[in-house]
């Protein structure tokens, strides 16, 4: 096979990308635009029910703002480490990239741990479960779905970390994967900032 054919191979089936953005990256952007609506619907739902009065305990009365601020800070920091990892890989500093990748995954895990703690406290101490009232249901549905997104992100981060560890380096293709996970991770982070602002800070009583 001639070299030129190989070049075509890399260039995905001999097609060029009309926009100049790699398929998978563009795909991720498109997917994330859909995810905005997904969380938009969940957040609107919470805003509708979260402020209503019910006979039973509602989330706005039992928020632990200092604690959630801390876990929000942790998630925010994980975006920073994500950038650092991506940046290191761009310089082909494999060791740094791997370290920051691990840090990102670890911070994500800490955030998830915080969420588990928060849910447990709400259920055990305050008796606010999924079915207590539409406000509590909306709260768990929203933060639960966000948690699932974070968990998926953490899994992807750890997988990349594992690959990097096993192969000793992240190939160019894995570098793109890192970028995609990074995009996703920043999205999850941005959504959390919106949730933290609208659902926690502004509606806490």
């Amino acid at each position: 096979m001639s070299d030129s054919t190989i070049e075509v191979e890399v260039d995905h089936h001999g097609e060029h990308e009309s926009t100049g953005i790699e398929h998978r990256k563009l795909g991720m952007w498109v997917f994330l635009s859909s995810e905005f609506l997904f969380f938009g619907a969940l957040i609107s739902n919470y805003l509708l029910y979260g402020g209503r009065d019910f006979d039973s305990v509602v989330p706005r009365d039992i928020y632990d703002i200092p604690f959630t601020s801390f876990s929000s800070f942790v998630l925010l920091m994980s975006s920073l480490t994500m950038v650092l990892s991506h940046d290191a890989l761009a310089r082909d500093d494999q060791h740094q990239a791997r370290t920051w990748l691990f840090a990102t995954a670890a911070l994500g895990t800490v955030f998830l741990g915080g969420q588990v703690f928060e849910f447990t406290e709400f259920i055990e101490v305050y008796g606010m479960t999924l079915t207590t009232n539409p406000a509590s249901s909306s709260f768990y549905l929203l933060t639960g779905f966000h948690g699932v997104h974070v968990a998926i992100g953490v899994l992807m981060l750890f997988s990349l970390f594992g690959i990097s560890l096993r192969r000793g380096r992240l190939s160019e293709r894995q570098g793109l994967n890192l970028e995609l996970v990074g995009l996703y991770w920043h999205f999850v982070d941005i959504i959390w900032i919106v949730i933290f602002t609208l659902v926690y800070l502004l509606s806490a009583s």
Partner: peptide
């Protein structure tokens, strides 16, 4: 969407 934008 990706196909239309990218594979013309």
């Amino acid at each position: 969407i990706v196909t239309i934008f990218n594979m013309r």
